[in-house]
Design a protein around this nucleic acid. Structure first.
Lengths: 210, 210, 210, 210
DNA sequence: GATGAATGAGCATTCATTCAT
DNA sequence: CATGAATGAATGCTCATTCAT
């Protein structure tokens, strides 16, 4: 159990989810992430988390209600952490091309910095989408997608971006990168995501450029 | 339980895996696919499959050895089915641009025709990659990737395709489409994949075009 | 949550157990009764009571010591409430026949007025009898039974009541009514207990009349 | 663990529920009865039953589905056992008075012979009535009550039985005996039920006699 | 007196797998 | 090849109770 790693991840949760003040709760989230990452979602048991977190079963249930609740809490914390990195960089972009660069580059960066969280998000999306928090998730996604679309609309009006079916933009912008990150996160390719940042942001830009 | 659908899927297994002669074995695979699709991999129990297949526990174990074995058999059958559609179309392509079109178009088509198999493949990859069949899977992927690379090399020599890090080609070619298909398969977008075949094959081509 | 009902029940507790001065304690008893009635004894958790009573776990334990203690307190309060109705009416009876009428009639009346308490008493007897308050319960019962026997002895000497095994009088006097009340309290019969007061007191009288 | 008792009780189950052919299933029922009797319904755990029955958890669930299912199976077996004793005796009664005698006498006899089953029935009625078998229970009761009412109608027409509200007959006939049996089964009175058979059947007869 | 976070023993139930027939 | 009863380790979760504040 590496204490350094724990405090780092815990710090992230603090940033991502400021409501989580209690060190104990953050600690459990951090340990749970390690377990989910090493064992997988289903294979991780509450008992494993309890043991590594040196906590108690009752305490975990007191804070998260259920295993599903723990997964959801972690998922939204990860979502917030990712957004906290990406949003300011995109807002700092003056032109569409820069925005695409910022989006792709920052996404790749985040995955590289937070591989556990990234793996967890890819795995847990389905579980959260099928659980009682599905509505919260839908709202968050709508919000994110809305920002993206707005920015694309501006690009279209400026004649810099092609008019394409709106459902496809997200896939055209992030699909290549996500596909590569999936491969990297599961060890099928070796080059770290940011190594190819140029390649992927160029591809994303070409995909939507007028 | 639609008998038409069952027989169709069973037919697919016959094509994909000619060794599976026994109707009973094919029937079990078909039912298992339905269960995995409706309940998820972990949530599906052998008992569920037994009940819907009107088979017996012993029979299932006789044919597939274990639940993991059943998943693997289904996975490779799906892989074969997909390849059986894609390979001939790509071989019929004269030029790189046509090959990209064929690859993307056929992938989208297959997902649209076989949504259950597609969902299953996306879900089961991890399970198969971590199981005892991981080597077989690696070989198959290497083989597929090799074909792709070969064809790309030719394009590069012909000056039609950009020289890019070889690890990135697969993501650049199929990432956007896969991302969209994931969204469609889980209901997050409505337009069926082939609707946007042009958009995605154009994006893939631009991503790698010289 | 009907405030009227609550205050009424709380009032009862005040009458039955004058020591319970604190409104808060009475409130908890009243809510506990509701929970026990709706969920059953075992199925009711301290947490449920805490929530509905808008109290705290600590407070409940401060007042009642344990769940068992809460059940016992409620049981004895119910016992007192019942006795407070029955005793004066029986003491007002001049002749055995009138005493039987008073006993049966008042029992039926009480059950009809306090169905929750009645259900609770029938359910909780076993729990209290097996708990640390079993002695207190035994004393109370002996006391009650003693009064009854005394009054029957007089009836026997006066030649109005048959001499029967003393263990059987209680069952002969109240068994029919209790059986009907059980059925009514669990919805198996519809006619309210007092509707048949005549029938049951006549039966009780015939059972013991000389 | 008395083997004699076990085989005796198992024999009863065979009589009461002929469908239960499997010795193992009967054995589990028999052990479960012992546990429920000694510990109470809620306090008995599947693990206790498993241990004393020298069976396996899986086997218990294979046969009964759930703890609730085990309780229900035992309840209906007890009901059948009771009916198997009472019904023929009542059918052998020529006149109402004899029928009352048969009913009361046989009920007391059964309780005395099968105290465990009797205690169990008294305790489990509520659980079964609130469970998924509630309908089956309602049908059985309706059937039993129907037979009783029919026989009472005949008595009324013959001028031997008073016309009373039909909802009250059952309580008037069996209430006193049941009340006494409850007391005996929980040790509050000492005289065995059949000792007072005369007293209770006389009381029942007086309660309804014209 | 009041509070509620923390505890952890204990429970019902699940389910992949085995194996005798 | 087919069957399905039997197995039992493992799991998520509950809930009465404690105790520091």
């Amino acid at each position: 159990m590496s204490t350094e790693n724990l405090s780092e991840t815990q710090h992230l949760f603090e940033r991502a989810e400021p409501g989580v003040r209690k060190a104990h709760k953050r600690h459990i989230l951090s340990i749970a992430l390690d377990c989910f990452d090493e064992q997988g979602l289903e294979a991780t048991t509450i008992e494993m988390i309890r043991e590594r977190a040196a906590s108690s079963i009752g305490s975990i249930y007191h804070h998260f209600g259920s295993k599903e609740g723990l997964v959801a809490a972690l998922y939204f914390a990860a979502l917030d952490d990712q957004l906290a990195l990406i949003r300011p960089r995109m807002q700092g972009a003056a032109r569409p091309r820069q925005a695409v660069d910022a989006l792709v580059q920052t996404y790749l960066e985040w995955v590289e910095r937070q591989p556990k969280l990234a793996r967890f998000m890819l795995r847990a999306r389905h579980a959260v989408a099928g659980g009682p928090q599905s509505e919260t998730l839908a709202e968050r996604n709508k919000e994110r997608y809305g920002e993206l679309l707005q920015w694309i609309q501006d690009g279209i009006r400026a004649g810099e971006i092609r008019r394409l079916p709106s459902e496809t933009y997200a896939s055209l912008l992030i699909g290549q990168s996500e596909n590569y990150c999936r491969a990297w996160l599961s060890g099928r390719v070796k080059g770290s995501p940011t190594t190819y940042a140029e390649v992927f942001s160029e591809a994303s830009w070409r995909a939507i450029a007028a």
